[in-house]
Structure formats: structure tokens, C-alpha cells
Amino acid sequence: MIPNGSTRLLLPTTVVGSYSVPEWLERLKTEFYQRRISAQHLTEIHEVAIKAAVKDQERAGIDIVSDGELRRDNDIDYFLARIPGVYIAQRAKSDYYDYYEAQVTAPLPEDADKSTLGLATDFEFTRQLTDRPVKFSFTGPFSLSRRIADGAYGEPADLVRALATRLNAEARALADAGATFLQIDEPFLAGYPEQAALAVEAVNIVTDGVPVSWALHVCYGNRYARPSWEGHYDFLFPAVLAARVDQLVLEFARKGLEDLRLIKQYAWPSSLGLGVIDVKSATVETPDLVAARIRRALEYVEPGRLMINPDCGLRHLAPEVARRKLHAMVAGTAIVRSELDRAEPDSPRTGDNHG
């Protein structure tokens, strides 16, 4: 199933989550941690940045937009700072992008407020900015656990499961707020390939009973526009076949398209989010290159099960580069849509349909 209102649109385009963080926003975020601006001031700044990010995506022609994750310093801290039972001794940072040193000294409380991260409020703010479908993403329990010193659980997997239960409550709040397309990001999993089965088990705890379209994004890290690990997606299979998600979002532009073989080899049954833009390079892809990558994927996945996106988030790209890459992605997708329309005259129309 193609998520969130795009069932009549072939090859819908979207983003993975994060959007370019301009230098001025980086500077202001750091000034907040150095107590030079207030939390309220920073909130107002974030809202301005999110409005601009959504508008950039709309102008590029992206079909399913995001808030750019611009309230978040990195892929971890926004969540750990809000989860009851996670202790962070020092919340000052010399640079906004640094990670907190977090720990748990007792099991996470089960009777705490079931919606404490504030993600539903974040979604509602973005929802009122656009008429287009919104994808909302958050970091998954396995990756969150990698940044916590665990002094509470005898079995590390139990911490992962406890985090998953907390995120399930947050996902329910998001669904109640009207979210229909949620994505779980597991950027650390490639560094612990032997833990794939545990990560999938935790994903299923997160998605349990939440009636939305679910995506799972697994990459090789994107820290300062560099991969944290290298390799192939073999480690995900066959474990990921047990994931109760509607879409698997993978990076292919930087790594090459060889791992598409796994989609056919293991008969991945659901949608594929195809990474066609290398977010670790400032070189802007041509529409023809994007189209070529999509055509190759269509040898493995039928058009109705394919969504087009960058490899990962656009956080580390300069704003102008991010905009140009999104425009190229949309233009390349349009080339292939046109080809599919000509090949299948009775296929679903591919006009500007965001309903």
C-alpha cells in the first residue's frame, strides 16, 4: 500500500525526514545551549524554519512533505530528553549537534504520562502549514538504546523493548492527532547487524495497534554527511520480513543499486522507499540520473509499490544544494511517470494529486 493519500499517484515523491539546517539556525541553536537566547525564542525560530522547509518542499514538487525535523538537534537527544526515567546530568552543550550523555538507573516507569515527547503537537503544527500529506518520522528504540548507559536492565534487549513501548504510546497520540504516515528511523542498526531480529521485534512493539501507514528507514548513518558504517543490506534479511510495516526505506544512490536484488530474492511484500539522491555529496544529480535509478528499481519492484526519496535526511546539505537536489528528484520521477503513462494508457493518472 502506498501510504497517506497517494494511492492514485504513481511513484510518489517524499523526503526521509530531516531538511537542510542553515548556518544561522545552527548558530542560534548553539546560542540557546550557551544561555544566550530563551527557549521561547528558540521555539519561534524553529517555527519559522519549519515553515520555510515545508515551502521549499512544496515548491520542489514533493508529494509527501515533512517538518524537516528542524526542532531536533540530532537523531537522538530530542527523544531521550523527554522520556521519563532517562537521566541526563548535563544538558548544556558546546555545540547543538553534540549528543547528550544519557543513562537509566532504574527501569523506565510504566505508569508515566503515556504521551510525553510532544510529537503530536509537532505534527499538528506542520499539518496546518500544508494541504499535502505529511510524513512524520522518529528515531526507533534500537538506535535510541545505543546512546543510553544502561544501569537498570539485566538484559540489554529489555531496554530496547521498554523504549519501544514508550514510542508506541507516542505513536498512538500521533494517530489521534491525525497522522496517517509514520516512519521509524534506525540509523544505528547497520553498526550492529547481529541485532536485526531484536530491532524488528521492537519495531513491531512500536507499530502495534496504531492504524497508520508505517515505514521503516534503515541506513548506514549520516553523521556530518559521512556514513558511520559500510556494507550491504544482507544483514536485514530475512529478519525484516517479520516487520509489521508498509514500507522499507533504504539508501541506494550512494551505495549503488546492487542491493535491489534482495528485494526480489526475499520477495519483500510491501512498498519500497527508493533512495535516489546521495545526501553525502554536494554534487546535484541530473534528472536523467534519477530517472535511470528509478528504471533500474522497476526491474525489481512494480510501480505501485515504489516511492521515491533521498537516501537519508538532507540535514548536512547547504540549503541551495538541498533545494536543487529535490527539484532534480521530482524532475527525474516525472520522466519515468511519463514513460509509464505512455506504456500503460489505462494506468492511474500521475497529475498533481495530493488528496
Rank of each mutant, 00 (worst) to 15 (best):
M1Y: 13
M1T: 14
P3R: 13
T7E: 15
P12F: 09
Y19G: 11
V21W: 10
W24P: 00
E31M: 11
E31A: 14
F32E: 00
R36F: 01
Q40V: 14
H46M: 06
A49I: 07
A49Y: 11
A53C: 11
D56L: 04
D56Y: 06
I62V: 14
D63Y: 12
G68R: 07
R71P: 09
D73W: 02
N74A: 12
Y78I: 15
G85F: 05
V86L: 02
I88T: 11
A89W: 00
K93D: 03
Y99P: 12
Y100V: 09
T105Q: 08
A106I: 03
D111E: 05
A112W: 06
D113R: 15
S115F: 08
S115Q: 07
D122G: 11
F123C: 08
F125R: 11
T126Q: 07
T126A: 13
T126M: 10
R127K: 10
R127W: 02
T130L: 11
T130A: 04
D131G: 13
V134M: 15
K135W: 02
K135E: 11
K135I: 01
S137I: 14
F138N: 14
G140E: 13
G140R: 06
F142G: 00
I148T: 09
G154Y: 01
A157M: 03
L159M: 07
R161P: 00
R166A: 08
R166E: 05
E170V: 07
A171P: 08
L174G: 01
A175K: 06
T180L: 04
T180W: 03
I184G: 00
F188S: 14
F188N: 02
A190L: 08
G191P: 07
Y192M: 03
A196V: 05
A199N: 05
A199E: 04
T207F: 15
G209F: 12
P211R: 13
P211C: 05
W214C: 06
Y220S: 05
Y220R: 04
N222M: 10
Y224K: 15
A225P: 06
P227L: 12
S228Q: 05
E230K: 02
E230I: 11
E230H: 07
G231T: 09
G231Q: 08
L236R: 04
F237S: 06
A239Q: 11
V240L: 01
A243M: 10
A243P: 10
R244E: 13
V245F: 02
V249A: 05
V249C: 04
V249E: 03
E251R: 04
K255P: 12
L262G: 07
I263P: 04
K264R: 15
Y266W: 07
A267E: 13
W268M: 10
W268N: 07
S270R: 13
S271A: 15
D278V: 14
E285S: 09
T286W: 00
L289W: 04
I294K: 01
R295K: 06
A297K: 03
E299G: 03
E299A: 14
E302C: 09
I308Y: 14
N309I: 15
N309H: 06
P310A: 02
G313M: 03
P319I: 00
E320N: 12
L326Q: 14
A331I: 04
G332L: 11
I335Y: 02
I335R: 06
S338E: 15
S338I: 03
D341P: 00
R349P: 12
G351K: 07
G351V: 10
G355M: 11
